[in-house]
Every structure is written in C-alpha cells, then in structure tokens.
Computed example of a mutant assay.
Amino acid sequence: MVSTVQNTDVQQKDAEHAVVVAVTFHAVFDSGARTDDGVYEVGVAFPLLQALQKVNERLLEKNPAESLLFDVVLITTDSQQQQQSSHITSSTRHYGLEVSRFCFSSEEDFTESLLKNKVQLFLSTDSNEALQVSKKGILAALLGEYTASCPSEQLRVLFCGDAVIWPDAEPAPESRQAAQSFSAQLGEMRQRFGMFDSPLNIALLTSHGGRESCGSALLTLRSLGVSADEAYCLAGAPRSPMLTLLRPHFLVSCLDD
C-alpha cells in the first residue's frame, strides 16, 4: 500500500521538468530524539535538503518562471512513523524544509512508491535500500556521517570517474540510463549560473590511472552536458582524505555508454 500526501505548505513543482529527489525519513530526521517542541531532531541529510533549497532559490531569483527545480519527496516505510505522520509534517514545517510530498509505503511496495513518484535520485543512509533501488533502475546514492558536516549554502556533487558504487553488482542498463539522465539535468542546472558564486558545485574525482583516465571521465561528463568545476586525479592515492576535504553531499558514478 502506497500513500502520497502533498505538502500544502509549499508550492508544487512542475512535474514535467522538475528533478525529483526522494530522501528517507531516517536520513532527514532522528526518530529517537525530539526537541521540547515535540519536533524531531535533524539527521545527516538536513544540510543536503538546505543546499537543494538554496539551488532552487537562486534559480527562481534568476528566473521566477524557472521549472527546472529540485522536487523533494520524503519517504518512510516505518509503520510507527506513519502512524505519527503529523510529527513528520510539523517537523518539516518547523525547520522550513521545502518537501513537496510525503510518501508512506510498506517495505514490499517501497520501490513501487519511488516509481509512482517518478523519482530520479534516491538518497538513503541504508546501503541495502540504496542497492535495492539501484537494481530497479533508479539512481541511488548512499549518505554517510560526513554528510552532516557538508555546507548548506552550496550543493556539492562529486562524480567518481572510476568508482565502484556497488561492488557486488553490475549496474543495470536502466540504472546507467538514469545516472546519465540525472547528470544531464544537473549539468543544465549548473549552466544557469556563472563561474563564480554558484550554489551548485560539480567535482570529478578519479581514484586510479593518470591524466588520461581523468581526461576520459571529463569527456564522458561533457558528453552529457556536465562541466565540472573541479577535477582531481588521485592516481592510486587513498580517497578518504580528499572526500574529507571536498565534503560532497553525495557521490555519483560517472558511467560510460
């Protein structure tokens, strides 16, 4: 059973052009902690949602009729949380989060709910959820503890030119196409802004190989309409220090055709 409720507190996005991003409840909020006002404490995805909103705000400042915007869906499969849906809606209102829809689903209908909402990017702190979604042809990214320290004034997306996002599974053709489609939309968004003072930063990182490997990955991105603001070639060096420095909100695999 899937139930989707529109958030009447925010203006709904253009369904034909918006980039739909689904984030799990347990990534946005800490269900085990509430403030004195009864709202949930924020989770690791909170800065990410703020950064998505900042991109939307800047796009609308440039063009009030802009339709290429992030459209955020908050999803939960926890039956106990669904029974307390009023706390979820009041918490998003309390923090001023621009969540367009609340989706309540069972674990069995979880991926179906994403497809019904035409989700283009799924974000979770649960690796099993992310892998399950990826196998259904939806682009998924895993959020980690580092996400909580990411900046909220600028959305930072890191493309990994040779990353193995799911080591135990080859990406399905549908998932590859979803990654390419999302990348193209992200690149189009980035083109709306100038070189400096952009609310959206796109970086590329290659862990192995030399300049040729990095150059090939850059060409792949450019073929999708994505111009990277920064590019890093680690040539076999550990990736963790660079991730700590770059502080991306999420990682996307740079997939070839």
Results as ranks from 00 to 15, higher is better:
R176A: 10
F25I: 06
S181H: 10
S105P: 06
N128F: 14
Q11C: 02
I138Y: 07
F102E: 01
L52V: 05
C254Y: 01
N128P: 00
N7I: 08
V119T: 15
E188R: 15
M242I: 15
L219G: 10
Q177Y: 09
L68I: 11
P248W: 10
S253V: 11
Q81M: 15
F102R: 02
L200D: 01
E230P: 04
V39C: 08
A163G: 09
K62D: 11
L49T: 01
T76Q: 00
S181A: 15
Y95Q: 11
G43H: 06
A179S: 11
D162Y: 12
T220W: 01
L218Q: 14
Q132V: 00
H94C: 08
C150G: 09
T24L: 03
L245A: 14
L234R: 14
L158D: 05
T111A: 13
T35L: 11
Q53Y: 00
D37W: 06
S223E: 13
E212V: 10
G161Y: 05
F29Q: 04
L243K: 07
D14L: 00
T147E: 09
M195P: 00
Q53H: 10
S127K: 06
I165M: 14
F193E: 03
L221I: 04
I75W: 04
K13D: 11
Q185R: 13
V23I: 15
L97S: 02
S253E: 15
E16G: 00
A130Y: 05
R156F: 01
D37F: 10
Y232K: 05
E57P: 01
T24V: 02
D30N: 15
E16K: 15
